[in-house]
Design a protein around this nucleic acid. Structure first.
Lengths: 195, 195
DNA sequence: TCCTTATCTGAACGGGCGTTCATTTCAATC
DNA sequence: GATTGAAATGAACGCCCGTTCAGATAAGGA
């Protein structure tokens, strides 16, 4: 085979992850069999084990890479000094990023209970890092009297829940453009924190 | 057996539903077997079929009765004429009702994809009825210029997502009392709709 | 005491599960 | 053309699944 480094095909591996992501999102981790994933890729079930040690690791890798991508994408965003501008960036970034990856978002939120304890802890740590990014913005704004938030932890959870909720109803080609959705949600968030 | 009317035990039926609710919420519908539910109740798997025609109906009944209880509880709440007061009632009611039933809420949100199409449609109709109750409040308030909401449908989804999000982090005996949580969330919702 | 009837058991049914592995395939290299 | 080795097959492993049902159990009414 023509490869430069490492083992395993560099084509089949991603195809397995894509098929697994789609099926897990659609039917749930527990309801999807390795044979179904293999059929979607066009191989026999045994071939999957050339690319993943087991089904659990397949799920964990999907969730971890999703959250790592989320964190590095946020880290790559431009940074404003003003908390209000920073909060707007966060809101728009969050909606944009999540609408672009509905399957991965769905899995990362719904399949936590199917993770073995150590995998669960690793995913929760990544999620907490992201939540902390928002809480830092809210704390800064509260310190500078630009926001009115009696409890930054609560406000953090409330804002993230509100923004992530877009994924539950948004459909491609729907009534509202993404830009309009971003603007409306940003305005609701802005007012909810008293800015 | 000492019974007044109908068939089946009036004790075992509810016990099955309680066990199923707990296990479905903890591990997911697809990951829980009828044998596990039976073991929790203290009977053999076959006995379950005296109380439910199949596993799918067991899930559907849990979700339907949860949503019907939600709708009738909301209908039983006192009615204010003022949209702002009405919205406060909705927010506090929603948080209170959902925090009292974490398992049922979890199931109703996470197991939609495991419903057969006609069952899914029935559940979605009930959920829509509840969302319409909130949207009506927002429309009234917008008409009377008490709220500033550019799109009532979006605001409805945003508010419900924010409020339901409490269930993802709230733990009994935590840092904040329910009253304090209700007040903080109500304030965020109030400001988010410009009231 | 006998009969009825709701309740439950325990075994069985066909089938799918995650995972393993000896074997086959086949393109790239020598 | 022979050799290599990654890639994939396909059969098998033991196990659990949802569901059915003939038979056992036991309590109430006659």
């Amino acid at each position: 085979m023509a490869r430069k480094t490492g083992s395993h095909s560099e084509i089949t591996g991603p195809r397995i992850r894509a098929a697994a992501a789609q099926l897990f999102a659609r039917h749930g981790y527990a309801a999807v069999s390795m044979r179904q994933i293999a059929a979607e890729v066009g191989v026999q079930a045994g071939a999957l084990y050339l690319y993943t040690p087991d089904k659990q690791t397949l799920l964990f890798d999907l969730m971890r890479s999703h959250l790592e991508e989320l964190l590095s994408a946020w880290a790559a965003e431009p940074v404003s000094a003003d908390p209000v501008a920073r909060l707007e960036e966060f809101c728009r970034f969050h909606i944009r990023f999540h609408l672009d990856r509905p399957d991965a978002v769905f899995i990362a939120y719904m399949e936590l209970r199917n993770l073995e304890p150590e995998n669960f802890a690793a995913i929760e740590a990544l999620r907490k890092t992201y939540e902390d990014a928002l809480e830092t913005i809210l704390k800064d704004g509260a310190t500078r009297k630009q926001f009115t938030v009696p409890d930054t932890k609560l406000a953090t959870m409330a804002v993230i829940a509100m923004l992530t909720g877009v994924n539950t109803w948004y459909r491609e080609g729907g009534r509202l453009s993404r830009e309009r959705i971003e603007r409306i949600y940003w305005n609701m968030v802005r007012r909810s924190v008293g800015a």
